[in-house]
Design a protein around this nucleic acid. Sequence first.
DNA 1: GTCTATAATGCGATAGAC
DNA 2: GTCTATCGCATTATAGAC
Lengths: 190, 190
Amino acid sequence: MKQPERREQIIEVADRLFYEQGYDHTSFADIAKAVKISRGNFYYHFKTKDEILAAVIAFRKVRTKAMLERWEQQGDSPEKRINCFIQILIANQAKILRHGCPVGTLTTELAKLGHHSQASASEIFTLFREWLCKQFEDLGRVEDADQLAMQLLARSQGVATLASAFADQSFIDHEVRQMSLWLSNLNFTQ
Amino acid sequence: MKQPERREQIIEVADRLFYEQGYDHTSFADIAKAVKISRGNFYYHFKTKDEILAAVIAFRKVRTKAMLERWEQQGDSPEKRINCFIQILIANQAKILRHGCPVGTLTTELAKLGHHSQASASEIFTLFREWLCKQFEDLGRVEDADQLAMQLLARSQGVATLASAFADQSFIDHEVRQMSLWLSNLNFTQ
DNA sequence: GTCTATAATGCGATAGAC
DNA sequence: GTCTATCGCATTATAGAC
């Protein structure tokens, strides 16, 4: 297989395994086995574990940016676009119940490990934060746009954590409805 | 040193290290070194890593129950008692900024590891949930008490995760004020 | 690019002396 | 109750053949 393809393949598998099992708990052997190459060959593509983590984070950033651009074009109002964000809790419900939020769980783990890539991983949160901030500004909440963005980010983060802890699907459904309601009432409560 | 004392000492050190470094990443050597006993001696007190994790979770449950009982007696109104809960984000600010919420980060990690103690660790959340539920009932919100408890639990959980990710102390301060405000307005918005 | 073989380290866990 | 010594295993990482 050509070099770029194999590299992409490894990153995608590592991305999935880091999410499902955690970064530290996932070994090169796990990734190599899933990609169906030998451990030795793995080192041709990535020299250290830090290197593949950096590649996975970069991959997630690109994917997140693409998703945010898609939402930007899909929704024809800021409220509809923010609802796209809220709805990912439903779209990824099954995975979130088992493994939590991909961004939150990674930044938390890297913080505990004292890993230098923690700051880089947190920038995925920043992508959501700035995008949401822009939407709230378009909604007319110019002054507290960033605070609203952080509030929504925090709440959906907490929903993912608790839904996973209690293995409670209906909690996600309920909180998503509540967040949508909160959003549609925002114009009148400033 | 007498057996029960040493056992307690190990549990307290393990509790701290599991919080700071994560469960999986903390080795017996780490704990033994911090307690200043040999690795071999460690096994006199705890035979497996599962065993010490179970002891730490049990320890946290006892400590949480004691704290909730203290809050129960301290606050002379349900609103003040719920504010005790909200204020732990301030009281434990420094630790939360570095290591997140002790309950949330442990349940998340155990979920990723597929560890059988995950359900037991989640019961610490249940202690808070049921205590908060009772307070919201006393506040007069009988019908949606559990939903309000879960909403507050989720929000403070998200605040801890994001504050840690961004290393942003002022975000905790701001969100705590917002949650207190939300609480004081609850009576009028039913 | 891919493989096998292997070095070097750290881990959970055990045995046995004191 | 505490220690030293050690086993068996998984891990990251390297060397070198094909």
